[in-house]
Design a protein around this nucleic acid. Structure first.
Lengths: 199, 199
DNA sequence: TACAAAATAGCACGAACGTTCGTGCTATTA
DNA sequence: TAATAGCACGAACGTTCGTGCTATTTTGTA
């Protein structure tokens, strides 16, 4: 058989792990709750990872495989369209409730800041990767004169990312989807200004 | 004596509670760690609050007494100056490391979203109060024609709040204060635009 | 200075946590 | 058919958690 039984149950475990972690956090993700959601024993789950930290890292990686498709863009689009496509997919991802407790990376970030260790390092690496893609897309749109502002790409990335972050947090706290409308408004206005269409 | 011993030790306990909670989170704030930081017994600390939830609420209230002075402004300033004063104080508060683990309300927000209860309700009330003051300051600056944009005050408040939030999160994760520079840049540009000085 | 009241310590509890271990199934291989 | 490897199970470990009792100490007052 191509996929062993071990790999498939591990995958199922991690599916539930991501769901639980998005609600309870990476620390609140306990072997007990995970085992019960799988109708497995605690030790059976544990054997797949060897430690809580490895489970947390594997959970982050699984969440990344769900999020990372947002970072891709059709190659036939223009640079600025690819950038807007990225933002739109990112927003859809946050809005989709694909993780019942909201973006795992954002909750893990505020959970693990100030707690050094391999889990935090791994998280920061994934977050950096996403932000890097955002910055690169902005750069490409600037290089092709489709964004006419002279702002540093990092500055624009910070502002766009801030709207995404804030929409996610406010939505998770209030369960009111209007915050995504507000975020879209903010992002649209910024693009218009940066494109130089709104002088 | 005017202030009883009970009140003063309770105050000391809560000082440490805010410090611990800002690093470990409201859930990670345990009676054990709190007792050790106070050189007290677990039960001695516990007796002051009666339950973990009440301790968490009292901790949020104590953090509020530290943060809320940011919301005040000298009455002799103009409306828009009062608004800028508010943002500046808010930034200084985030940057000051007065809480070693960053803004307690922001970490508590992502910790408690999706976990209904009296602690979450209390937190949301405090957060709403801060955002309300921000919106009101914006409204007053609009009413007095010092902000010439027709954007809804809630929209502007969302964007400003997003920059504050994002600066705090990025700083806590990376310990790099440049994010406050980036946030100040963003906020300054937005004020300039909203004042109509940058057409 | 003595005494009632208030504040703190001490102790034990049940539950949950991550982790380790030996064991029993159930396939695959010899 | 016999031997082996892969998985999962249940029990138990030591620790930490919040909480409930009962002493003991400390405090403010008469």
């Amino acid at each position: 058989m191509n996929t062993s039984k071990k790999q498939s149950t591990r995958a199922h475990i991690l599916e539930n792990a991501v769901r639980i972690a998005s609600v309870e956090g990476l620390q609140g993700l306990s072997l007990n709750s995970l085992a019960q959601s799988q109708r497995m024993s605690k030790s059976g789950v544990f054997a797949h990872f060897g430690s809580k930290e490895e489970l947390q890292i594997a959970t982050l990686d699984t969440a990344w495989t769900i999020f990372s498709p947002c970072l891709t863009a059709p190659p036939d689009l223009s640079a600025v369209q690819q950038l807007q496509h990225l933002i739109e997919q990112w927003l859809n991802y946050l809005e989709s409730d694909i993780f019942p407790g909201g973006c795992v990376f954002m909750s893990a970030s505020s959970e693990l800041d100030g707690k050094p260790g391999i889990v935090r390092d791994h998280l920061m690496q994934l977050v950096s990767r996403a932000v890097f893609v955002l910055i690169e897309r902005i750069r490409k749109a600037q290089d092709t004169q489709q964004l006419l502002t002279s702002l540093p790409a990092e500055q624009m990335a910070f502002e766009l990312h801030a709207f995404l972050l804030s929409a996610n947090l406010s939505y998770q706290l209030s369960r009111d989807k209007q915050y995504f409308l507000v975020a879209r408004n903010a992002i649209f206005r910024h693009f218009e200004e940066w494109k130089g269409l709104n002088p």
